[in-house]
Amino acid sequence: MRALDLAMLVAFLAYIVWDGARRGRGVKDAEGYLLAGRKMRWWTMGLSVMATQASAITLISTTGQGFADGMRFLHFYLAIPFAMVILCATVVPWFHRSRVFTAYEYLERRFDRPTRLLASVLFLVTRALAVGTVIYAPSVVLTSVGIPKWVTIVAMGTLSTIYTAIGGNTAVIITDAKQMVVMVAGIFACLIVAWVRLPDDVGLVGALKIAGATQRLDTFRLLPDWRAVLADKYNLFSGLIGGLFLFLGYFGADQEQVQRYLAGASVDQSRKSLLVSAFAKVPMQFVILLVGVLIYAHYVFAPAPAFFRAPELEKVLAGGSAVAAAPLRARLDELESRRAAASSQRETAARAFLAQGAPGAGGAAGGATTAPTIADLRRADAAIAQVRQDGMQLLRDAGLAKPDEKNDADFVFTRFLTTEVPIGVAGLVLAAIFAAAISSLVSPLNSLATSAVWDLWAATRARPPPQEQVVRATRIATLFWGVFATVAAFYMGSIPVIEQVNRIGSMVYGSMFAVFLLGWLVPRARGAVGWVSLAAGVGSVLALHYGVNHRLVLRVAGVEWPVNIEFLWYNLIGFLVVLLVGFLASRFRRIDSPSA
């Protein structure tokens, strides 16, 4: 880390904490502390909603995904515009009209208290599982820019907790909005640097052609067969259908997001805040993935280590005993020579490919001559991917990576940051990474505390507690969740959670949103129907995940189908089960009657 970059980061963090903490001055009532006095404008909330969703994983891992796998991850976000319109027409006005503090409070009014408690507990459990990851993931990656893991964890955990506890939701929303601006600046800075760093004779179009030839620009993925559609992680159908229900649940029933737009001065302000994401999310993810793709093209022509975490191993080999290090050194040398050979083949093939022109653009004549070149390019590319995989195996064997750590691509971005991004700009990008992490940590801290206090404590007391007591309790709960997240981040490495965050969410999101919709679609569904159908939805997704998926072989239309359903589809399944069970249960008077 260079001094100027570090100074920029420290100054940025100090400003955010100061700006957040001063928002808490004089706030004594629950509405002021939990919902920012319901005075927020749409653009501030809109930026906060985006900042809450975009974590440091989004910046670091998504560029890594663009690098290694290309742009197919974009399918994940395609449903956002459609989801936002549905939410603006449904839950946003419902929440506003009923003047609730949490989404789950609305469920008590529509169904009963157990439904509210179940929904709140589901939120608390799923969010608590994810909140440590938000700190842990960047802390691992930032070791490669020279910041020790514990420093990142303690800095992020402590600073976020302090200003969220003092400033409440106003602090969260306003600092989120500012951090989102820093994030966008950081992303565009990366894009420009990645573009400028491409060789002059390759350029942006050349880089995109190479990325296209190695199947990294697959932004419109239609698969021919329903089994493939279900089993493939990111394609047009899983994104538009599974993703739709994931985002309906995430933005419509997850307090982490609901609490941001509930702070709106009017229904219209809240609606417009969600539409910011509807317009900007897909382009933003496109640019982040494009940065990854351009970094890939950069390393086609620039030297790179055998794998991106190799420097960690080299450092240990340099300091350890020669006898113990010898077998590891031999394996690393072998990887390096394989990588060098494949890199040179890939560069030659890429240059030949560019010299001939892309067959798609050049017509049939070009296609005939470039076919072997493309095959060479892909073969060399696959060989390098294999070297990186073997490198991770080596790292695990050396005890430097946990058994579940398989992704070397997460370290591409920081490698590029430390070696290619100029001083000063690197400080901005580093601040953007911290901004992304902190802004997606403070929202769950604020909302975990709010739901724990408002839904579980205040709601179950005989008499509603005084406002000051609610604010004090929420501040204490924020401190608790802050400490929880920080401690969890230290222990996170042993559990394979990084990739699991969206999976955990997908187990409940579809079901959660469906309960809200059930109240609207089925007027007879009242009382216990709410929690019965919610439990059925989440239960069936859990049963599918742990009992059926990848375990059973079914016969469908005379053909054997080993059940293989990717996680985005869980949202649709949970959603359908809740509506079906809710509809059927509402026909039974015995379940229907107690609170009806």
Partner: peptide, 30 residues
């Protein structure tokens, strides 16, 4: 702008995004 017009605009944006991504993928597909 009326809420309904805003919704139409957002939905249209969703469809335009899909179209642009299809063109992008097609332009560089090999």
């Amino acid at each position: 702008m009326s809420t309904r017009r805003l919704y139409v605009l957002v939905l249209a944006w969703g469809v335009v995004t899909l179209l642009l991504l299809w063109l992008f993928a097609k332009a560089f597909a090999v």
